[in-house]
C-alpha cells in the first residue's frame, strides 16, 4: 500500500464580486474582478475555477465570460439541493462587493482543433460552452448548439446566445413547451471531422455516450457536473505514476495525459484513440485512486478501481501517486 498525501492546494486569487444577477430560474450569474485590479491569468474555453465558500467547502464552476477580457471572470451557479449547501450559500450570501477566494482557471475540457463541432448543453451545462461557441465562431468553424432545459425560464443565457448567433446555430428545447431535447435525433447522423462537446446532467451524458458508440471513436468530449463533495472533486494537480513493470516513476503534469508523460519518460503504453473511447490503453491499477474520465468502463468497473484508461483518466484529487502495471 502506498500512503497518499493530500495534494497541495493550488494558488488562490483574491477577488471581489462585481455583479450578481439572476439570469434564469435558480441560476445566479456572478462577475468577479481581482481585488488588486490586475488581470486574471489567461484561460481557454472549457476552463473552470474552484470557488472557496468557507473552511473546506470548495465548488467548481465553469468560466463563461470571454478569454479576450481577462479583467473579469463570469460563472453561472445553479441552486441545487446538495448536502453541504454550496450553491445555496452562493445564492444567499454572495452579493456585489463580497470578497471571494478562487483558484486560477484550469481546464479539463479543452476545445480540440476540428473542422466542425456539435455542442450539446443540458441546463447549466451551457456555461463552459459559451466561450467555446465564441472561439468556434471566431475561427469560422461549422458548428451548432443544441441546448435543452426544463423550461425556457430555466435556461440561462439562452436569449443572448440566440440574439448573438441566430436560430440556425442556436437550437433551444424546453421540456414544458415541446418534447425537449431529442438526443436521438441530434446524434442520428455522424458527420466526418466533427467533434461532439457535451455538458449537462449525468443521465444526459450517459445517453450521449451510448449514442456516440455509432460515431467514430474519440469524437465525444464531455464534462460531468462535478460531484458535490470535496475529495471527489476533479483534480488538475500534477501527480506521480510509478511504473511497476518498467521501474521508476514519472510526474504527470496537469495538461498532460498519463500516456504522454510515460512516453516522454521513454516507457511504453499501448494506445489507439487517446480519447477514452477504444479501451486499448486499459491498465491495471496496483495502488492509488483513479479519476475515471473515459466512456468505456462500466460504472461497476469504475467503482472497482482495478483498471483505468490512461489516455484520459488521472489520479483522483487527494491521490498524489498511482502505481500502475506498466
Amino acid at each position: 500500500m502506498t500512503i497518499t498525501a493530500p495534494s497541495k492546494a493550488p494558488a488562490t486569487l483574491d477577488t471581489v464580486i462585481e455583479s450578481a444577477e439572476k439570469v434564469a430560474d435558480e441560476v445566479l450569474s456572478l462577475e468577479l474582478r481581482k481585488v488588486d485590479g490586475t488581470d486574471f491569468p489567461a484561460w481557454e474555453p472549457g476552463a473552470h475555477i474552484d470557488v472557496h465558500l468557507g473552511d473546506d467547502l470548495i465548488r467548481q464552476y465553469s468560466v463563461c465570460s470571454t478569454p479576450d477580457d481577462l479583467s473579469v471572470l463570469k460563472i453561472g451557479v445553479l441552486r441545487t439541493p446538495d448536502s453541504r449547501g454550496g450553491s445555496a450559500y452562493v445564492h444567499e450570501h454572495l452579493t456585489p462587493g463580497t470578497a471571494l477566494t478562487i483558484s486560477a482557471p484550469r481546464n479539463n475540457f479543452p476545445l480540440l482543433k476540428s473542422r466542425k463541432y456539435l455542442f450539446i448543453a443540458g441546463g447549466v451545462g451551457i456555461t463552459p460552452m459559451i466561450p467555446m461557441l465564441e472561439q468556434a465562431e471566431a475561427e469560422g468553424k461549422e458548428w451548432v448548439l443544441h441546448y435543452g432545459g426544463r423550461s425556457r425560464t430555466s435556461m440561462a443565457f439562452a436569449d443572448e446566445l440566440l440574439a448573438k448567433y441566430g436560430p440556425e446555430k442556436i437550437l433551444l428545447y424546453a421540456n414544458d413547451e415541446d418534447n425537449g431535447l431529442d438526443l436521438n435525433a441530434v446524434l442520428a447522423l455522424p458527420r466526418a471531422h466533427m467533434l461532439v462537446y457535451a455538458c449537462g446532467p449525468g443521465g444526459m451524458l450517459t445517453a450521449i455516450e451510448e449514442l456516440c458508440m455509432g460515431w467514430p471513436p474519440g469524437v465525444l468530449h464531455t464534462e460531468r457536473f462535478v460531484a458535490a463533495e470535496l475529495g471527489a472533486a476533479s483534480s488538475s494537480e500534477p501527480f506521480e505514476v510509478e511504473l511497476a513493470q518498467t521501474g521508476g516513476s514519472v510526474k504527470v503534469q496537469p495538461n498532460q495525459s498519463i500516456v504522454d508523460a510515460v512516453e516522454e519518460a521513454g516507457a511504453r503504453v499501448l494506445s489507439s484513440c487517446r480519447a477514452g473511447l477504444c479501451g486499448t490503453c486499459e491498465t491495471r491499477i496496483i495502488s492509488g485512486e483513479p479519476e475515471h474520465r473515459d466512456a468505456v468502463l462500466t460504472q461497476e468497473d469504475k467503482d472497482a478501481g482495478e483498471v483505468m484508461l490512461v489516455c484520459v483518466s488521472r489520479a483522483a484529487a487527494g491521490c498524489s501517486r498511482l502505481v500502475l502495471d506498466l
Binding site: 442520428a188 447522423l189 455522424p190 455509432g214 460515431w215 468502463l297
Partner: peptide, 22 residues
C-alpha cells in the same frame, strides 16, 4: 454508411468492448 451504419455500430460496440472482452 450513416445512418444505417450508426445503429448497427451502436449495437456492436455495446456488446463488444474492453469490459466484455476482459
Amino acid at each position: 454508411d450513416p445512418p444505417i451504419h450508426t445503429v448497427m455500430r451502436r449495437a456492436l460496440t455495446g456488446v463488444i468492448n474492453p469490459g466484455t472482452v476482459r
